[in-house]
Structure formats: structure tokens, C-alpha cells
Design a protein around this nucleic acid. Structure first.
Lengths: 224, 224
DNA sequence: GTCGTGTCTTTTGTATTCAATCTTTGATAA
DNA sequence: TTATCAAAGATTGAATACAAAAGACACGAC
């Protein structure tokens, strides 16, 4: 009975949302590459729907910063220049600092446990070759922190900023030599929360983010 | 939907963008009130277009945080709770600090002149009874700063955060007793830029923003 | 009274159609 | 060969049509 209900709930998702999620995933995972045209008919055929939900999904992607449309010429997957990256990182640096400060003050014990579990999952993932899993567990770790900040608006904005750069981050995570460092940083973060040391946390988050800059920058340079 | 909505036909913009701008303005100016339903047919008739561009515009408003839609029940103008306001202000505080820091480092002489002109325009406006003009010149003053930060991504995010609370801000600006204070704060800001004193600027911006909190909070309480 | 139940209306969701605009292609002329 | 331009095709923009769901309301059973 309850299974039926949840199943119905899934059926209740409007197609535009299904399409939006599908396209969003495809963009984030690199299946749709930066600069690639998003042609309505083409996508509609591939997904087996009409153009209407495709168009609405594109409007949503647009506002997320994942697609750019030129009137009467169509939409394409958003490209990032190095300047764009720098700009987003500047913002994320400020928002991460806020998030970690809030989280430090507001994190519950349950969330702290969750954080340690996420840490373990990430550590386990780095011992496999599954890059996608590594990325996902890393994101999940940070999700716990952002969620603990208990500010949904902040969470939204950070997620949107993350999305814009995460497509360029695979290269960084693919390189096993950085795992040790990432794990160490995550451990420091946990320690910071344990001691409720805001200043230390701010510093670590700052380092943690800036370590990604060059990697992502190279990845962007490769995009022709 | 008490006011008459009219489309400003910029011939080259797609209708969805014209509709989006029209609805956005109407929401920000309070013509469409928080919680008010956005019925497609009604809006379409009012604006003399079909449902298609209305629907696309609603998808855009949604991502801006100005509208909320429940699947198969329709969209409504987003309401803010006190918690929402607090969350947005927390974010804006961090972003304003970043913006003012960047602007302090990057502001050109031309932009400084522009800032002083915007200051004057605001001062002039406070001597009239035109609340809308006062709000607009105040926003323009801050626009100069945000633009001087030379970070379009930051500008976008701040604008989106501003939009979410500006509809609740009229009450604050309506009260002439705060003009003197606002002018004084704006003057301090200009002084800060003149001296390139980042710390002073951060402090002023923080004060400037927190002064608005109670006013907006009251305005939100009044919304039933 | 109130709780369902079925019907009718309203509204949203999606597909389809028609119109406008852009792109491509290919023929022609300099 | 290259530049130009017109026609054809492809693609987007907007309106209309049709389907499905939600809401309103009357009616009857309990």
C-alpha cells in the first residue's frame, strides 16, 4: 500500500522535472559537454517526450547556470572560462566560510555522527578505482556540513555554485595522489567540529577549496 | 492581481522574457502579493499571450525564488517566513562583505565617480515623497558597488538574494526618519572606498544591512 | 450532521500545429 | 576561386488542442 503510494508519487513528477533532472545529471556527468547544443527535437526524440517539457526544463537549467540560450538560436550547455571559475571560487570561498561557521555552531550530535560516517565512506571509496563513487562520497561529506548549517537558502546557493564547477573536477579526483591529502583535510575538518573551533575550520575549508583551483583550471583549459 | 499588468514590448526579446520581466517587476513591486496564485490562463488573458510563454516565465521565476509551484496545483508568489528572511540575510551579510572587499580592491576612478553620483541621486530622492524613486536610487547605489566587485557570478547571486527580500522592504524605506541614517551610512561607505579601508567598509555594510532586519521582519509578520 | 460518491468545472500537463527565424546549400557572377 | 544571394531545410517561438488531475458541489447513505 505504502509502496504503491510512493510509486504513484514518482509517477506524479511532471515530465518537465524528470527531463530537468535527466539533463542536469547528463551535464554534470559530462555526457553533455560544455558548448554542446541542446536541440529540442533531438532531446525530445531521445527522451520520448514532446518539445514542451524539454523547453521548460531548459528554462530551469538556464537559471541554474548549466545552460545558456541565445534567443532564436537555441540553448547550449554552459561553458566556463577561467574568469568564471575564479569568480565562482571567490563566492564559494565566502559561502563555505559562512557554512562552516554556522555548522560549527549548529551541528547536532546526530549530524556529527553522520559526518564521521561520511568520512569513512569517502575513505573506503578512495580505496577503489570508482571515480564516480569517490566524487559522490566526497560531495556527501560536504553535504552533511552544508546541511548542518541549518540554512536552506545558503544550501541552495552553495549547491548551485558547486554544480557549476563540479563538471570540471573529475580530473582532480582521478589522480590518486591527492587522496591522502583529501583524507587528511577531511580529518582536520572533523577534528575542527569536534573542538568547535571556528577559526581552524575556516582555515581548513579555505585550503581545501584552494587546492582544487589549479586542477579545475587545467580541466577548463583543456575544453576547447 | 489587483493592478493592470501591461507588457513592455521590446520587439526583439522572446515573449517568455518579456513575460518574465513583467511578472518579476509585479512581484517585486508588490502588485502580485506573496501567496497569490499565478494562474496561467488568467495571466495569459491579462497579458494577451498564450499559456506557453507564461509557463516558461514561471519556470524562470521559480528558479529565482520568486515563485513556488506545486505539481498539478499551480504556482504562487513565494512567501517568506521569518526564518527564510534570517537565512537570506545571513547569506547576504557574507556576500556583501565579499563584494565590498572585492570592490574596495578593484573599483576604478570612473566607478568611484559613479558612486558619488548615485549617492547624490539618492540624497535628492529622499527629499521627495516618491518612495519608489528612493528605493530605486538606493538600489542603484549598491549596484555600483556590486558591479565594481568585478565578479558577475557574485553580482548574480547577490541580486537574486536582494530580490527575495526587497518586496518586504518598502515599509522600511517609507519611514522618513531613517533617511538621515541611510544617507550617513552611504557617506561612510563612500569615505571607506576613498580611503580604501576594507575593514571599515565591512563594518559599515554589516551595520547597513542589519538595520533593515527588524523593518523587514515586521513587514513579513504583517503578511497573513 | 458528516462522510463518501459521482459529476461537472477549472486548472495544469503534454502534444501538436502553425509561424517566424536562422542555417545551409548551391547556383551565379565578379 | 571567392563572394553573394536566394531557396530549401532545420530549428526555435508561440498558439492551440487535447488529456489528466484537482477542486467544487450536489446528492444520498449512514
Amino acid at each position: 500500500m505504502t509502496e504503491n503510494l510512493t510509486l504513484q508519487m514518482d509517477e506524479y513528477l511532471p515530465l518537465r522535472d524528470v527531463v530537468f533532472n535527466t539533463l542536469r545529471e547528463a551535464i554534470l556527468k559530462g555526457e553533455l559537454k560544455p558548448g554542446e547544443r541542446l536541440m529540442e527535437m533531438h532531446l525530445a526524440n531521445r527522451l520520448g517526450v514532446s518539445r514542451t517539457p524539454i523547453r521548460e526544463a531548459i528554462r530551469m537549467l538556464e537559471q541554474e547556470g548549466l545552460a545558456v540560450t541565445i534567443p532564436r538560436k537555441g540553448a547550449q550547455v554552459a561553458k566556463m572560462t577561467e574568469k568564471d571559475l575564479q569568480d565562482v571560487l571567490e563566492v564559494r570561498d565566502a559561502l563555505d566560510e559562512l557554512a562552516v561557521t554556522c555548522a560549527c555552531r549548529r551541528m547536532t550530535n546526530e549530524q556529527f555522527v553522520e559526518l564521521k560516517e561520511a568520512m569513512k565512506a569517502f575513505e573506503d571509496a578512495t580505496r577503489t578505482d570508482d571515480v564516480r563513487k569517490i566524487v559522490e562520497t566526497d560531495e556527501a561529506f560536504h553535504d552533511v556540513i552544508y546541511h548542518a548549517a541549518a540554512n536552506p537558502k545558503l544550501e541552495n546557493i552553495i549547491n548551485s555554485a558547486r554544480e557549476q564547477m563540479y563538471r570540471y573536477r573529475y580530473e582532480y579526483v582521478k589522480n590518486p595522489s591527492v587522496y591522502a591529502q583529501l583524507i587528511a583535510e577531511h580529518k582536520s575538518i572533523i577534528e575542527g567540529f569536534d573542538k568547535r573551533d571556528e577559526e581552524a575550520l575556516k582555515a581548513i575549508m579555505h585550503t581545501h577549496l584552494s587546492n582544487q583551483i589549479n586542477a579545475v583550471r587545467n580541466s577548463i583549459r583543456e575544453q576547447v
